[in-house]
Structures are given as structure tokens and as C-alpha cells.
Design a protein around this nucleic acid. Structure first.
Length: 275
DNA sequence: CTTGTACCCTGACCGC
DNA sequence: TGCGGTCAGGGTACAA
């Protein structure tokens, strides 16, 4: 479920706890969350006794650099999450533990994934670099400019909402923050990407960055089932302008927020403020 | 090439 | 209480 701010929040929670630790043992309880190229057995063998020398994020992926030139790539997708501790987390809340990474200090990193759409992949540094080439720029990087967004939108007739969620165009924006950024920019999510003019692109660029930054400051958005590490919740849900507010009054103009479906996903917008 | 749809999976919720 | 339909913060395979 997490988008960029949620994944980055998890990264910040995990890094000081697991950086430098050695993975003493790996248990795979749900084999299908181990993603190619390795099967569960090779995955477990190759991670064992390796030190974690980096805890990074790229797009919506968490990356644990392990000594020896490998990268453990974590795709949380809709329901993946972590718990860390000496003892197992509350079994009433973490009911779908799919893997356990035992650390050399006795603590265990639990990967829980109710829907099992996410997973863990062990890649060589070289293969990760190939994967990374498919991803668009990080929207919060200082090098990310309105012209970058403009170029990527100019090349598509897709609705701008879909284009924002396309990880090859810009990395880390998902269903919540696409809707929120378009509201802030005053842009109708159904407009074809290439139809946006320069001022609209400039506004959208600022909106994407500001909404992600603010969400990050509030440790992300937590609904019933999304939590950061060990169940810590974010608070950005209180700041949402349109997402999950169908029928409620727009905070700017009181027009009821509308919900439509684009590419199979809900989009929320204010038909009056967004043109 | 681009774009839309089906699908992976479990659980919560709603109307009947 | 049960049952079917819908929906959920993602990404990919495949068809058109």
C-alpha cells in the first residue's frame, strides 16, 4: 500500500536499527513472496551471514545492500510491512508473517504481507542497476525540475493521473498522492498529459513535491491497515484534500468531491477547482 | 511503440 | 448468519 512517503518512513525507521547488522538466518514461511531470480532455498542460503551495509529507498522499493555486492529488494505493494524486535509482534495484528530475518543481535525482522502481492528479491548489484534504469526520476531530488515533468507528460495522451502513477515517468507517486497533487495544482485528472500547458506543469511539479514532502513530515498516511515499522502510524490522512472523501465538501469551495475510476483505480477530485 | 484490462491475494464491508 | 459483490496505498503480463 505504501507510496514514496510511507516507504521512506519505513526506511528511516529501519536504518538505525539494522544498518551494520549481520543476517544470521532467514526463514521463509510463504515461499511465493520470494521473487525471481532466486528460489526460496538459494535466497536463504545467499543471505545467511551477510552484513547489511546499506538501507536505501528507490521509488517504492526498499533496498538493503548486503556485503558481497548483492541487493535485497523489498516490494511492499499493497499489504507488505515490517516488525522488528526480540520477540514476535502481536499475533492479532501480524497474522501473515511471510519471512523472518534473524539478526546477529538477537532481534528478528519480520516481513508480514496479508495479500502476498509484495515480495523479496535478491539481486546482484548489476541486475539492480538494470532494474533501476526502468524507473523515472525521484520527485524529491533537488535535480528534479518542472521541465522533467513537462517532457514526460508531453509524450503521452494518457490521462495525467495515470501518467503520474507510471513509475517510468516519475518514481514513487501512487494512487493517493496522484489525486492529492492534481487537486493542489487545480488540474482535472482526466486531461491528457500532453494537453497541460506550461503554468499547469509548473503547478503540478510544485504540487507533487509539496504533497510528498508534507506527507513525509507526517510519517505518511495511515488507514486501518497501513503502519510503519512495528505498527507506528502516520498522520497525513488528516491532511488529505480529496482522497477517500467522495461526496464530502471540497475544503476550498464546498462542491462535493467526486470519485471516478481510471485504469481500474479510484480517482478523487473536485470538479469545480480542477479544470 | 502506446494504452487498457485482467490478474495476483486476503479481508473488510455493504446490501439483501 | 450467510452470501455475493465491491473495494483496497501496486505492478506486470498480455492483447488490441
Amino acid at each position: 500500500m505504501p507510496e514514496l512517503p510511507e516507504v521512506e518512513t519505513i526506511r528511516r525507521d529501519l536504518e538505525p536499527e539494522i544498518f551494520g547488522r549481520v543476517i544470521a538466518k532467514v526463514d521463509v514461511l510463504q515461499p511465493d513472496i520470494v521473487l525471481p531470480p532466486h528460489g526460496p532455498d538459494a535466497f536463504r542460503r545467499q543471505l545467511r551471514d551477510r552484513r547489511i551495509v546499506g538501507v536505501r529507498r528507490r521509488a517504492k522499493y526498499l533496498l538493503f545492500d548486503v556485503e558481497g555486492g548483492s541487493v535485497l529488494q523489498v516490494q511492499l505493494r499493497m499489504s507488505g510491512r515490517f516488525a522488528l524486535g526480540l520477540e514476535a509482534p502481536d499475533p492479532a495484528e501480524f497474522r501473515h508473517i511471510a519471512a523472518r530475518l534473524h539478526l546477529d543481535d538477537g532481534r528478528i525482522l519480520y516481513y508480514d504481507d496479508m495479500r502476498r502481492l509484495g515480495g523479496l528479491r535478491l539481486l546482484s548489484l548489476r541486475d539492480w542497476k538494470l532494474e533501476e534504469k526502468k524507473l523515472g526520476p525521484e520527485p524529491l531530488a533537488s535535480s528534479y525540475r518542472a521541465t522533467d515533468l513537462g517532457r514526460t507528460l508531453a509524450s503521452t495522451r494518457s490521462p495525467v493521473k495515470n501518467a503520474l502513477m507510471d513509475q517510468r515517468r516519475v518514481a514513487g507517486v501512487g494512487n493517493i498522492y496522484a489525486s492529492e497533487a492534481l487537486f493542489r495544482a487545480g488540474v482535472d485528472p482526466r486531461r491528457p498529459g500532453r494537453d497541460l500547458n506550461e503554468p499547469e506543469i509548473a503547478r503540478l511539479h510544485r504540487s507533487v513535491r509539496s504533497v510528498l514532502r508534507e506527507a513525509l513530515r507526517q510519517a505518511g498516511t495511515s488507514f486501518q491497515n497501513y503502519r510503519a515499522v512495528n505498527g507506528r502510524s502516520g498522520s497525513f490522512q488528516a491532511s488529505l484534500s480529496v482522497y477517500a472523501r467522495e461526496g464530502e465538501p471540497c475544503r476550498t469551495c464546498d462542491t462535493p468531491v467526486e470519485r471516478i475510476v481510471q485504469a481500474g483505480r479510484s480517482t478523487f477530485f473536485c470538479p469545480s477547482c480542477q479544470r
